[in-house]
Each structure stands twice: as structure tokens, then as C-alpha cells.
Simulated assay, not measured.
Amino acid sequence: MLLSREKSQLLIVDVQGNLLAAIDGKDWVLERCQRLLRAARALNIPVTVSEQYPKGLGPTVDPLRDLLGNADVVLEKIEFSCVKNEALRERLHELRRQGRSQVVIAGIEAHVCVTQTAIDLEAQGFEAFVVADAVGSRAKESRKLAIARLGRSGADVVNSDMVIFEWLERAGTPEFKELHPLVK
């Protein structure tokens, strides 16, 4: 199944200061999350951001916060899976009721919150797309294990280029011209 901008929503999981600082390849993960967020904003794809215990881990990092619009939602949680948090679950389901059953997932940590969220989303009838180049863990091995497990669990493992090009569908459009710098 290809991604569709009309059926998609973007979920950015726990990209917070104190946690991001410990992530292997943190600059790359952050850049890829920004890339996805820019594309979602340009294509009017709804965005949800989770924050794991922000009192301890800090808020979502400024480079992402600066890109968020008024319609985007940032919700706190203490659960590892976003689906186990009532407010996040309701937000994701509300967007699904609007026809957005594809959840594109980026963030940290790949082997904990991202994996648990993707598996729970699949179990609840969503199509989960985990963006491999936009997820990270403190240890490389943990990220590798998460990507392998996600592929076996029914989630689609994609990269940010795949997401953006599938959302765009074709070249030559105003949206393509706007987003081309992100993928060249």
C-alpha cells in the first residue's frame, strides 16, 4: 500500500532535549524529522507530537517546535506507546474518522516508544509507516533490532524520501516545486 496525503497523518514521538542528546545519530534523526514536518505542513497533513514526561526529559526540541503550526497538537504522556495514552489515542482515532488511517511515525526511541506505538496502531486497524531514517535509539543495535521487529510485525518500514515522494505523487506541481529542495 502506498502512502496517500489524503489518508496520512504524521506522528512525531518524543523528540525532546534530554532524550535527543543521548541518541546515536541525533543530528540526522532531527534533520529527518524536520524534513517530514516541513512536508506535512506544506501538504496539509495533520501532525501530532508526543512528549514523554516533559518535566524530566524536557519539551520537544526548538527546531521542531518552531515548525509546528497552530493546528498541530502536542500531547504529554507517561505511557511508552502513544496508543496507551487516552488523549493521544483519541487524537489518532479522530483523524482516522476523518479518513486518515495511515500513520507515518518518526522519533525516539525506536526500540521503545516508536515500536510499541506502531505495533499497537497496527493492532487497532491503522496502517503504521515507520520512517527508518527518522527514528533513533541510544544504541545502534537497539535501533537495528527495532527496524527488524517492525518489519515482521506488519508495520511498513520506509524512509523519508519514500514518504515525501508518495505524498507528492508526481513532479511538476506547485507542491513538488516547494518540496523539491527537501529531497534533492
Rank of each mutant, 00 (worst) to 15 (best):
R91A: 14
R91N: 13
R91C: 15
H93M: 13
E94V: 11
R96M: 06
R97N: 15
R97D: 15
Q98G: 10
G99I: 04
G99T: 05
R100P: 01
S101V: 01
Q102T: 04
V103P: 00
V103F: 00
V104H: 03
I105A: 08
I105H: 09
A106H: 00
I108C: 11
I108K: 04
E109K: 03
A110K: 06
H111M: 12
H111R: 10
V112L: 14
V112A: 15
V112I: 15
C113Y: 05
V114P: 01
V114F: 02
V114R: 02
T115W: 06
Q116S: 13
A118M: 03
A118G: 05
I119W: 07
D120W: 08
D120S: 15
D120L: 06
D120N: 09
L121T: 06
E122G: 03
E122S: 09
E122V: 15
A123S: 14
Q124S: 12
G125C: 08
G125T: 04
G125V: 10
F126Y: 06
F126K: 01
E127G: 13
E127W: 11
A128W: 02
A128L: 00
A128G: 03
F129T: 00
V130W: 08
V131M: 02
A132S: 11
A134Y: 08
A134V: 11
A134E: 11
A134C: 13
V135A: 02
G136I: 05
G136P: 04
S137A: 15
S137F: 07
A139Y: 12
A139Q: 13
E141W: 09
E141H: 12
E141S: 14
S142W: 11
S142Y: 13
R143C: 00
R143N: 06
